[in-house]
Write a protein that binds this DNA or RNA. Structure first.
Length: 747
DNA sequence: CACCCTCGAGTTCA
DNA sequence: CTCGAGGGTG
C-alpha cells in the first residue's frame, strides 16, 4: 500500500507541531467518544485514520510531544475509568467438556463423528494452563480485551493488555470483519514465570503458586495510586505474558472451510497463534498427538493441562451446535494428575476441634499439578503404616482430583538407611494429655481433654465463627487463635468458648500474638533475638485523640468490629446457635430440623431419646449424642453463660415442640441443589431461598434431586446432574423457581 | 441391606 | 471441593 505521506511538505517546526498535536488530540478524542461511548459516527473512517497517521507522524518527529494519554497510546474509550468494568461479549464464551482417559476420548470422537454423519478431520492442539481472554476488534482496531468472566460478561482489562507483547492494537492486512472477536489464552511461559517468582522472592513479595494465578494477578493490577517505579514494575510483569489465539467468534461467512485455515487467517492479521497443532483424519491420529504431548509436556515452553480436540470442518460446527455450556464439536482431554517425587521431612500430628489426632506429612515444597505443596494428610497411624513411608524417605506425591495432595508411597530404592519410622505420639501434642481411642476398636486416637486442650478450644471457637454456624465474619482462624492462646496476657480471654459473649473491647486490647513463619511454622525473631509479636486489637491514639485527653493504646477497628459482630450473633436463628455448640453429628442440616421441630434449646434438652428421634434426619445416634452432650457440666455452663449474656436460645413465636409450621411454600416436597456462583445469590443465600420457599436444599446431587441450579464454576455436581438427566437451571430461572415455583418455569 | 445423605477434615485459592 | 466414614431411610 503506497503512502500519501511521501510527498509531504517540509517538516513543521516544533511549535507548529505542538499546536497541531493538541488540535488532533481533541479531534480524535471527540471522534472516539462519539464512536465508543455514544455509538455515533462524526467523521469517516478514512478521515479518522488520516488524523491518527498524522498524529503518529508528528509524535515520531517530536517524541516529547507525545503525552501519556495520547490517542496513539490508548485503546478504545478513555482508559482508566474502564479498567475491570464489566464487558458483555458479543458472543458467549463457552467452556469445554472434559474427558480423562483415552477411552472416553475415543467415545466422544465416535459420537461426534456419528452425529456429523461423515468422516471428519480432527484438529489437535495444546490446552494451555492460562487465562482465557476475548479480544474485540472493530474495523481492525482493538477496542476491548476482556476476561472470560461467566462466559457472557467479563472484566475489561484492555488497559493492561496494551503491555502484553504480541497482541496487536491494530490488525494487519484486510479481510477481517467489521467487528470480530478472537479468543485465546494469556499465560506466563514457564521461564518467564520462574523469573517472575524469583523477582517476587527477591523483593520479599509473595510468590505465585502457579502460572495461571500469576497471569490472572498480573492482568488485574491497577496503576492507580502507584508511583512511577511501581508502574514500571507492573508493566515489566505484563511484559512477561504471552498470548496465543485459538478461536474466533461468530463469522457468518468465512472465506475458509476449516478451523485450521482460520488459524492461518488469524496469523495473517498479525495475531499470535500456536504452531503446535495438527490436523489428523483418524481417532488413532488424535491418540498419537495426546500420547506425544503426554510424554513431552514439560518440553513445551508453557504449562499445559491437556489437549483440545476440535472438529476441523467449520460447516459441521453449526450442525453439531452446542449445549448451554460447551460446543459439541470440541473436547478437552485432561492429562492425569501429575505425580512427583519429594522428600518426606517429617510426620507431625495435629489435633482438630473434635480432638482427633491426625498425622500429616511435612514435605520439601514441590510443584505438582499447578501449585506448590508442602503438606498432605496421612489420616491416621494405620494409613501411615499401610503406605509404608518412613521419615526421610523420598515419596511419590500427587493431587487427587487435581486438588487434594496425597502421598502415594515411598521410593524404596532411594533409601540410604537414615530413614526412621514414625511413631504415633502417646500424648496430645498441644496439651500433653494421653491420647486414646474413644471407643473399642476405633483407629482414630483422640485427645480426651476436650474442655481445655488449646487445639480443641481454638478449633471450636473457629467453628463458631464459621459460615455454617454463627457466621461471624471477624472471627476466623487468626482471631480464634489470638483469643484462645495469645502470648500476652498469659491467661487467654477465652479459656473456653463459654465466655465468648462476655468479651469486651478491653479484654482484647492487651492481646499480643507471636508471628510465625507461614512455611516453617517457627516463631519469627526480631533483631535482638526476642520473638516478634503483633497486637492486632489495639492501635496508637491519633493526635486528635491525644489532644482530647485520651491516653494509651486504643482499640483497633478489628477489635470493635469483632465485639460488635459477636453481639449481633446473639439473636441469630436457633439452628445457628445449635451448630455453634459443637455437638457431635449436629451440623447445619440436623440443627435446622431440630430447631424447626422444638423451637427452643430448652425443649431439646427436655426431650427424651425417642422424642428426639422423631425428628426427620435424626436417629438414635444423634439423639444419644445430644443427650450425652447435655450431661456434661461444662457444656451446660456454656449454655448458661451464653444465655446470661443475652443469647437467644429460642425461636420467637414458635408454637412449641412438634408443632412446627409445616410445609407449604412453592417448593414443598422438592429437593434443589445449588452449585457454582449464581448471579444475585450468595452460596448461603441460595440455600436460604430454597428453604424459605419450603424446599429441601441438598448438598449433593442424587436421583432424588428435582432441580440443579448451576452457575459459572459449577463442577462435578453439574456433570452428575447432566448424567442423571436432572433439569438444570441458570440463575434467572432459579430466581423464578424460588419465588413463583416450578410451574412458573414453563411460561 | 442398599443406597443416599450429612458430617468432618484437609487443602488451596481468590 | 473432595473424600472417607458412618448414620438414616426405605
Amino acid at each position: 500500500m503506497a503512502s500519501v505521506d511521501e510527498t509531504a511538505p517540509a517538516a513543521p517546526s516544533r511549535e507548529e507541531a505542538a499546536d497541531e498535536v493538541a488540535a488532533l488530540t481533541i479531534r480524535i478524542n471527540e471522534a472516539r467518544d462519539a464512536y465508543y461511548e455514544r455509538d455515533t459516527v462524526i467523521i469517516s473512517d478514512a478521515e479518522y485514520d488520516e488524523l491518527m497517521r498524522r498524529l503518529e507522524a508528528l509524535e515520531r518527529l517530536y517524541p516529547e510531544l507525545q503525552s501519556q494519554d495520547s490517542p496513539t497510546l490508548t485503546v478504545g474509550g478513555r482508559g482508566e475509568t474502564t479498567l475491570f468494568a464489566p464487558v458483555e461479549h458479543a458472543e458467549r464464551m463457552l467452556s469445554l467438556d472434559n474427558v480423562f482417559s483415552a477411552d472416553e476420548l475415543a467415545e466422544w470422537a465416535t459420537r461426534a463423528r456419528a452425529a456429523a454423519g461423515r468422516d471428519v478431520h480432527w484438529l489437535c492442539e495444546l490446552k494451555i494452563d492460562g487465562l482465557a481472554l476475548n479480544l474485540r476488534y472493530r474495523r481492525g482496531r482493538l477496542v476491548s480485551a476482556a476476561t472470560r468472566g461467566d462466559g457472557r460478561v467479563g472484566e475489561d482489562v484492555t488497559e493492561n493488555v496494551r503491555f502484553v507483547p504480541g497482541i496487536p492494537m491494530q490488525l494487519e492486512g484486510t479481510g477481517h470483519p467489521e467487528l470480530v472477536e478472537v479468543r485465546g489464552e494469556v499465560f506466563f511461559p514457564t521461564a518467564a514465570f520462574d523469573a517472575l517468582n524469583a523477582r517476587q522472592a527477591e523483593t520479599g513479595e509473595r510468590e505465585f503458586a502457579n502460572p495461571r494465578n500469576a497471569a490472572s494477578g498480573s492482568l488485574r493490577q491497577k496503576a492507580e495510586g502507584k508511583n512511577a517505579a511501581q508502574i514500571e514494575l507492573m508493566r515489566a510483569r505484563l511484559g512477561g505474558l504471552q498470548m496465543l489465539v485459538h478461536g474466533i467468534g461468530a463469522w457468518p461467512d468465512p472465506p475458509v472451510a476449516a478451523q485450521s485455515e482460520v488459524y492461518g487467517l488469524l496469523a495473517e492479521w498479525g495475531l499470535p497463534t500456536s504452531t503446535r497443532f495438527r490436523v489428523v483424519d483418524s481417532i488413532e491420529g488424535v491418540q498419537e498427538f495426546v500420547a506425544y504431548y503426554g510424554e513431552h509436556r514439560h518440553s513445551v515452553e508453557h504449562e499445559i493441562d491437556g489437549v483440545v480436540v476440535k472438529v476441523d470442518e467449520l460447516a459441521l460446527h453449526a450442525e453439531l451446535g452446542a449445549t448451554s455450556r460447551a460446543p459439541r464439536w470440541a473436547i478437552a482431554y485432561k492429562y492425569p494428575p501429575e505425580q512427583v517425587n519429594t522428600t518426606l521431612v517429617d510426620i507431625v500430628v495435629s489435633v482438630g476441634r473434635t480432638g482427633r489426632a491426625t498425622p500429616y506429612a511435612v514435605m520439601e515444597p514441590v510443584r505438582v499439578a499447578g501449585s506448590v505443596v508442602r503438606q498432605a494428610t496421612l489420616h491416621n497411624q494405620e494409613v501411615v503404616k499401610a503406605k509404608g513411608v518412613l521419615i526421610g524417605d523420598t515419596v511419590v506425591l500427587r493431587k487427587a482430583g487435581d486438588v487434594i495432595p496425597e502421598v502415594l508411597g515411598p521410593v524404596v530404592e532411594l533409601r540410604d538407611g537414615t530413614e526412621r519410622e514414625f511413631v504415633m505420639p502417646a500424648e496430645c501434642p498441644e496439651c500433653g494429655t494421653p491420647l486414646r481411642p474413644m471407643k473399642e476398636g476405633d483407629i482414630d486416637l483422640r485427645c480426651p481433654n476436650a474442655r481445655t486442650c488449646p487445639a480443641q478450644v481454638r478449633g471450636r471457637v473457629e467453628h463458631i465463627g464459621s459460615r455454617g454456624a454463627l457466621d461471624i465474619e471477624a472471627l476466623g482462624e487468626v482471631s480464634a487463635a489470638a483469643l484462645t492462646q495469645p502470648r500476652v496476657p498469659a491467661e487467654p480471654p477465652l479459656p473456653t468458648e463459654a465466655g465468648l459473649f462476655d468479651l469486651t473491647v478491653d479484654d482484647l486490647t492487651p492481646i499480643e500474638v507471636v508471628v510465625r513463619d507461614a512455611e516453617t511454622g517457627l516463631e519469627k525473631l526480631d533483631a535482638d533475638g526476642s520473638a516478634r509479636v503483633r497486637a492486632p486489637f489495639r492501635r496508637n491514639p491519633t493526635s486528635a485523640e491525644r489532644k482530647a485527653g485520651l491516653e494509651g493504646p486504643q482499640p483497633s477497628a478489628s477489635a470493635i468490629k469483632l465485639i460488635d459482630e459477636i453481639a449481633k450473633a446473639k439473636t441469630k436463628p436457633l439452628w445457628r446457635i445449635l451448630v455453634s455448640l459443637n455437638i457431635r453429628h449436629v451440623g447445619p442440616v440436623a440443627a435446622r430440623a431440630l430447631a424447626d421441630h422444638f423451637g427452643s434449646l430448652e425443649a431439646i434438652r427436655a426431650a427424651s431419646r425417642d422424642e428426639l428421634a422423631e425428628v426427620e434426619g435424626v436417629g438414635s445416634i444423634i439423639a444419644d449424642s445430644l443427650i450425652d452432650w447435655f450431661e456434661v457440666d461444662w457444656h451446660r455452663e456454656i449454655v448458661d453463660r451464653w444465655a446470661a449474656a443475652g443469647v437467644q436460645f429460642a425461636t420467637p413465636g414458635h408454637p412449641g415442640p412438634g408443632r412446627a409450621t409445616d410445609g407449604g411454600g412453592v417448593l414443598a416436597g422438592l429437593t434443589v441443589v445449588a452449585t457454582g456462583s449464581l448471579e444475585g445469590f450468595t452460596r448461603e443465600g441460595a440455600q436460604e431461598a430454597i428453604i424459605a420457599a419450603g424446599g429441601k436444599a441438598a448438598s449433593s446431587v442424587s436421583k432424588k434431586t428435582d432441580f440443579v441450579a448451576a452457575g459459572p464454576g459449577a463442577g462435578s455436581k453439574l456433570a452428575k446432574a447432566e448424567e442423571l438427566g436432572i433439569r438444570i437451571l441458570d440463575a434467572a430461572q432459579f430466581a423464578i423457581l424460588v419465588t413463583k415455583g416450578p410451574d412458573a418455569l414453563e411460561q
